[in-house]
């Protein structure tokens, strides 16, 4: 699905009223809420009855079921809310293609099985043209091989951090990996407490 707009911010992706949930799921129906619906969304609404904005790209019949999001520069700028990747993932997106991303958003994607791929502007421009010209346009994204296959058989390579790639493919638990180094952390902490005891003081009564 092509979202032809630069600097798409996290308020655009998931407006703040939906951040009140204490759960991690169910954000997909409110993805791009202010653009997708014509009325103002609230957390307790029955979204199935809300008036859709027929012009917004997410609502176009040809893009129903899309799992690859084609985007412009600085996608995901703004807040650190992980609700943004949660909403994209919950809706059904698996891969994002854009020339650049905001740092925190980019990092948050990998924690949620969402793959943000960086492609140069020219390639992104060409993809926008191709997807708009061809109804039913599909891309195949091969993470192990780091390749995107186009309908005409041509392939585009992409870079992905080796550690993050392994975590995505094997579904590894970041915390579990870090805790394998628990002794190292404990040693560092003891030494740091000696070097910089001022970071370990707490006021009386705390």
């Amino acid at each position: 699905m092509p979202l032809d707009r630069a600097n798409v911010d996290t308020d655009f992706i998931i407006p703040k009223q939906f951040l009140k949930s204490i759960k991690r799921s169910g954000f997909g129906v409110n993805l791009f809420d202010e653009h997708r619906y014509l009325d103002k969304g609230e957390p307790d609404m029955d979204n199935s009855n809300r008036p859709l904005n027929p012009e917004f790209v997410l609502n176009l019949p040809r893009y129903q079921g899309a799992s690859v999001l084609l985007a412009r520069d600085n996608f995901g700028c703004g807040s650190s809310r992980e609700h943004a990747p949660w909403a994209l993932d919950d809706y059904g997106f698996r891969v994002i293609l854009a020339p650049s991303y905001a740092d925190i958003f980019f990092n948050n994607c990998f924690k949620n099985g969402l793959l943000p791929i960086v492609l140069d502007r020219k390639t992104i421009d060409a993809l926008f043209q191709e997807v708009e010209a061809n109804v039913g346009y599909q891309l195949e994204v091969d993470l192990p091989e780091q390749l995107i296959r186009k309908p005409d058989g041509t392939e585009l390579g992409f870079e992905v951090d080796a550690f993050r790639k392994r975590c995505l493919i094997e579904g590894l638990d970041d915390i579990g990996i870090t805790l394998q180094d628990a002794e190292l952390i404990r040693n560092f902490e003891e030494q740091w407490r000696t070097t910089a005891p001022w970071y370990f003081t707490t006021p009386e009564g705390v």
């Binding site: 991690r24 650190s80 809310r81 992980e82 990747p85 925190i104 990092n107 948050n108 924690k111 949620n112 970041d174 915390i175 870090t178 805790l179 628990a182 952390i185």
Partner: peptide
Amino acid sequence: GTSEVEHVLAT
């Protein structure tokens, strides 16, 4: 993000 909040709490 929230995954990292959990990571910092735990590690």
